[in-house]
Structure formats: structure tokens, C-alpha cells
């Protein structure tokens, strides 16, 4: 299966991932190569096979619904690219 430059642009948009115009063709080529590798999977019948999401087939552990984290707002904001008055700044969303 092969992907076109348009496909790559569409996927990149879904991922909100900027890619250089001159690289689009190379990504289409690489991803097509990866998809070719995957053809092998379709040769195997997996009709009655349970999908495996986790190596231990483990259920997620639960804990009591209690607050355990301490507030570290300042520690987290120190490493943010742009903050003001305790808020994270982004470009204007609403005009």
C-alpha cells in the first residue's frame, strides 16, 4: 500500500505536526515502506484471537478516591514557556 503526499499532509494535520514541504515526499515513501512490511500481518488468520493490549493482561489497579498529590503549581509553571499571573499563555483563541 502506498501513501500520497496528500495523505501525509492529512495525517500530519491530525497529529498537529508541522513537517517541511520538501520532506513530505520522503515521509510518504517511508510510511509506504512501513505499510509494505505490515502486509505480512494480513496473511495470518486472527479471527478468534483476543487482542493483547498489555503484556501481563493486567487490569488497571485502583486506589481509594482520596487526594494524594500535593499542589505543585509553581514548580510546574517555572518550566512553562510562557506564564502570567499563574496562567499558561497561548495565542488569542477568541476574538
Amino acid at each position: 500500500m502506498s501513501l500520497t503526499a496528500d495523505d501525509v499532509n492529512k495525517i500530519a494535520h491530525l497529529a498537529r505536526l508541522g513537517i517541511d514541504k520538501q520532506d513530505v515526499g520522503a515521509y510518504a515513501n517511508d510510511l509506504s515502506g512501513m505499510l509494505d512490511l505490515m502486509i505480512r500481518m494480513s496473511e495470518v488468520n486472527t479471527d478468534h484471537v483476543e487482542p493483547m493490549a498489555h503484556p501481563m493482561d493486567q487490569a488497571q489497579r485502583l486506589r481509594a478516591d482520596e487526594v494524594t498529590e500535593i499542589n505543585q503549581r509553581e514548580a510546574f509553571q517555572v518550566i512553562a514557556p510562557q506564564v502570567e499571573a499563574g496562567l499558561y499563555l497561548v495565542p488569542k483563541v477568541i476574538e
Binding site: 495525517i11 500530519a12 497529529a15 505536526l17 510510511l31 500481518m41 495470518v44 486472527t46 484471537v49 487482542p51
Partner: peptide
């Protein structure tokens, strides 16, 4: 970027069963 693109594609509508679910079944095997 290559892997983000591949993963986004494999999880996108219409391809999830063919790629992601299939791969998880293969993982079981």
C-alpha cells in the same frame, strides 16, 4: 515525526482495525 505519523495513521478512522487491532492480535500469537 515518522513514528508519530505512522501511529496517527494506524489509529485513524478506517484503519484502526486493519492495523492496530490486527497488530494486537498478532502480539497475542
Amino acid at each position: 515525526k515518522r513514528r508519530i505519523l505512522m501511529g496517527t495513521y494506524a489509529l485513524s478512522t478506517g484503519y484502526y482495525d486493519a492495523y492496530y487491532l490486527k497488530a494486537q492480535k498478532i502480539r497475542r500469537l
